[in-house]
Simulated scan of single mutants.
Amino acid sequence: MTIDTGSVKAPRTLAQRILGFLGHGVVHVVLIIVAVIWLVPTVGLLVSSFRTSTDSAGSGWWTAFLKPAQLTFENYASLVSDTAALGALGNSLLITLPTTILVVVIGSLAGYALSWIEFRGRDWVLIGIIVLLAVPLQVAFIPVAGLFRSLGIFGSVIGVVLFHTAFGLPFAVFLMRNFFGQVPAELLEASRLDGASEWRIFTRVVLPLGLPAVASSRSSSSSGPGTTCSSR
């Protein structure tokens, strides 16, 4: 009598059970609801930017959907003629461009490593990244300000870039890991059999397939206000 040991699955670790729970459909629905609620203030600010100060003071931004005549480009016309505002826009570009590049590059590399490279403690690293998603920015304001002051970068563009990059990476890594994990394993195995290195597989196979996720992760680079070390 023979015993088929191939059908016996190894017991799941605590980290694997936690990750399995986070992958349930109910959790996804809750996250979608939270995301929609999170976007409401942003939509409100966008609509308010097309309303006059009188309309904004007299009624809520949502009334613009019932009265489209309230929408105007007057605010943007005034913005273009304001040199101080244009200078602030230039600082925003100096912060946004390097932050976006750093978040996308580091997030993509980490997402690939967490998806297809086996190393000890990989699941716990992913759980730590998920936990960082829930850390309020306000908790880090004072310690980060103290750290940047000691390094001499408080109030500089470099300080703001580092701040935004640090708080944008958890979401970017989580997003890229989930997307890269859906790439067929057979495709990667075929590349390895052809002698391709991990770097070549990442740049030539996985990254081109993950361009939609890369585009989505760009939004994470804007997370976290830079008021703690505003550039001057």
Score class of each variant (00 low, 15 high):
202 F>I: 12
147 L>F: 07
68 P>N: 15
120 R>A: 11
207 L>S: 09
160 V>P: 00
175 L>G: 00
178 N>Y: 00
30 V>M: 14
195 G>P: 04
213 A>H: 10
179 F>D: 10
16 Q>I: 08
20 G>E: 13
130 I>M: 09
173 V>Q: 02
64 A>E: 05
128 G>Q: 11
143 P>I: 09
114 L>K: 05
132 L>S: 11
77 A>L: 15
136 P>Q: 08
166 A>T: 04
207 L>A: 10
15 A>R: 08
114 L>G: 00
196 A>Y: 01
31 L>R: 04
95 I>R: 07
2 T>Y: 09
131 V>Y: 13
14 L>P: 01
49 S>Y: 04
184 P>A: 15
66 L>K: 02
145 A>R: 06
82 D>E: 15
40 V>Y: 06
183 V>M: 08
148 F>Q: 05
66 L>N: 06
22 L>Y: 07
99 T>Y: 09
4 D>G: 15
214 V>L: 11
192 R>P: 11
93 L>V: 10
38 W>F: 13
127 I>C: 01
28 H>Q: 07
114 L>N: 07
109 L>K: 08
227 T>W: 14
225 P>S: 13
212 P>Y: 08
161 V>Q: 13
54 T>E: 13
215 A>Q: 04
154 F>Y: 15
1 M>Q: 03
117 I>G: 08
72 T>F: 00
60 G>H: 02
10 A>R: 09
144 V>Y: 01
228 T>L: 14
4 D>Q: 11
1 M>L: 15
187 L>H: 10
18 I>F: 10
80 V>T: 11
75 N>G: 13
167 F>W: 00
15 A>N: 05
153 I>A: 13
223 S>L: 13
223 S>Q: 08
67 K>W: 09
